[in-house]
Amino acid sequence: MRPFQYDRARTLTDAVQITQGEDAMAIAGGTNLLDLMKLQVETPGKLADINRVGLGEIADTDGGGLRIGALATNTATAVHPRVRADYPVLSRAILAGATQQLRNKATTGGNLCQRTRCYYFMNIDQPCNKREPGSGCGALDGIAKLHAVLGASGECIATYPGDMAVALSALDASVEITGSDGMERTIPVRDFHCLPGDTPWRDNVLEPGEIITAVTLPAPVGGTQLYRKVRERSSYAFALVSVAAIVEMQDGVFTRADLSFGGLAHKPWHDPRIAQALVGNAPSAQLFDRAADILLEEAQGHGENDFKIPLARRTLHAVLEQASENAA
């Protein structure tokens, strides 16, 4: 860990002020940032501890939705009565991630900003365009088991590793952001993370000095909500593939099918064409295959991760089968 100046922010204005400047970063739970700082993947010169700026609240919104403060811990969110009752896919996704110890520290904002687990990104003695632009992508011809099959580029095939954001994407939640000038903006979670393209160092749309203040969930949509995570251990492992699903049926046909996918891309993957294909149709293996065809239309393996393509198809089948049974 490089030496850094540590400041404790007491208010949001404080926090935004302290995190100005090239090498300043905000720290909340610290579960990802300190991990990376020890490896010197992250080397902030200034660290703003924002834990005490009062963004931990989880509160109802006027429109019947729920506003989850950026500093609400993953645990606080997952066990919140309204999340359990109205947004079970979010509880399930959080509970499928990490461990209780980590969830007790990890925060909403930090989790959205979680960086990739690509082996080459995390090893500063290996090439990585995300960590060191222009150094090359170590994973491309290396070990790429964890890596992306959708939306990758020749510069970077890393995946976004989180679970919570996959559920937030399915729920079509929004991210509230405050900038250095006090300007606030809100963007859909589905647009928060970036694809690597030729700017792989950019994980998301946050501009320097911007801080996430909350995530807002729309009014409850009900339906059957599932989070399915496939991993190499039965717990405490990152997703090979995950699916967040919100499904409703009426008279034997899908009336809602909001699906997002983890483990496949540099961002939680959401393709609105999948819902279009499913809605109005009765569940069948052929229909599920059609949905998978849409999802995987552009899928591209890199050898070691080729299996993710059939695995995504089969996991989608499993989820749709279960969801349609539950919803029927």
Partner: peptide, 24 residues
């Protein structure tokens, strides 16, 4: 898992070298 180009151990931590967890 070893890198095919320089032989380094790629999954050199307990997040990616998967020893069984309690639930296994």
């Amino acid at each position: 898992e070893f890198d095919p180009r320089d032989g380094h151990l790629v999954n050199c931590d307990l997040a990616e070298y998967h020893v069984p967890v309690n639930r296994d």
